[in-house]
Amino acid sequence: MLSVSNPLLVVEHLTMRFGGLIAVNDLSFSVGRGDITALIGPNGAGKTTVFNCVTGFYKPTEGRLALARSGIAAAQDVADLTQSGAQHKQMPSGDIYLLERMPDFRIAHKAKVARTFQNIRLFQGMTVLENLIIAQHNPLMVASGFSILGVLGIGGYKASEQQAVEKAKSWLERIGLIDRADDPAGELPYGAQRRLEIARAMCTDPVLLCLDEPAAGLNPKESLELNTLLRSIRADHSTSVLLIEHDMSVVMGISDHVVVLDYGTKIADGTPSEVRNDPKVIAAYLGVDDGDEMNPAHGGAK
């Protein structure tokens, strides 16, 4: 297991059972602050289940998911917080949240974990701009006095909304969709929808961005653009990225840390070059015949 010196998210002994089926079995790994961590594995390995546990869409059967919104999730403090029975506490090492105790929307709102979906979930009938404004729901809700002041027209809601629009505009410029701001999201081409979903997640100001197969269905040029976008997210924002991906040019190109799952258990955990050469990974996941996919020249080394 790669030792992460500044863990943002520490997953310990995560197990998820659906009736008799064990989707994730005693999985432990860490996500470093400021890193891009990739979660890979064959279809049905349990990657999306891990995501659903981290983002609260599933309640894990067993295990602990500790996230430090600021600082680091130090082992002693995480243990103390677990003892206290609370969801969240400001600990000496950091502002720690226990995700397995929180409902999904609170994880997004309070612990600041944003996610995208394998099958894109945009608000199709709403415009591109509206999609990005809705992502800023919680701060705007406070600004509108929980709608009561907003209906009466009292308070600084207009200014806050303008700020939200500015933020949306800066993201639209970044993903190259500024000219389509007033078009319905459902009319965008597939690649643009993927980028918009990432921008929408980023509008919630996350500390951890979870991307579920962001490169699925993209052509090579679009995958390259995605790499650039993800690198720039890491460089310009204090956002760490956890991603599930099958496209090895993305995984090997941008990841700092790769965790490999197979049948719900972790089979490898390390830097891309370590994982690439791990015989277990080659055997179980990539297969001998697909070994050429892992060629650095093809995949594009860092």
């Binding site: 983002t55 869409f57 929307f105 944003a114 979930r121 945009l122 608000f123 729901h137 809700m141 509108s144």
Partner: peptide, 23 residues
């Protein structure tokens, strides 16, 4: 207002709403 947009977003996709921190 945010609440009205949240209603429409809820009609469009409830799961996406939850992933954006909307109660």
């Amino acid at each position: 207002l945010p609440v009205g947009r949240a209603w429409e977003a809820l009609r469009e996709d409830e799961i996406a709403c939850r992933s954006l921190g909307i109660n």
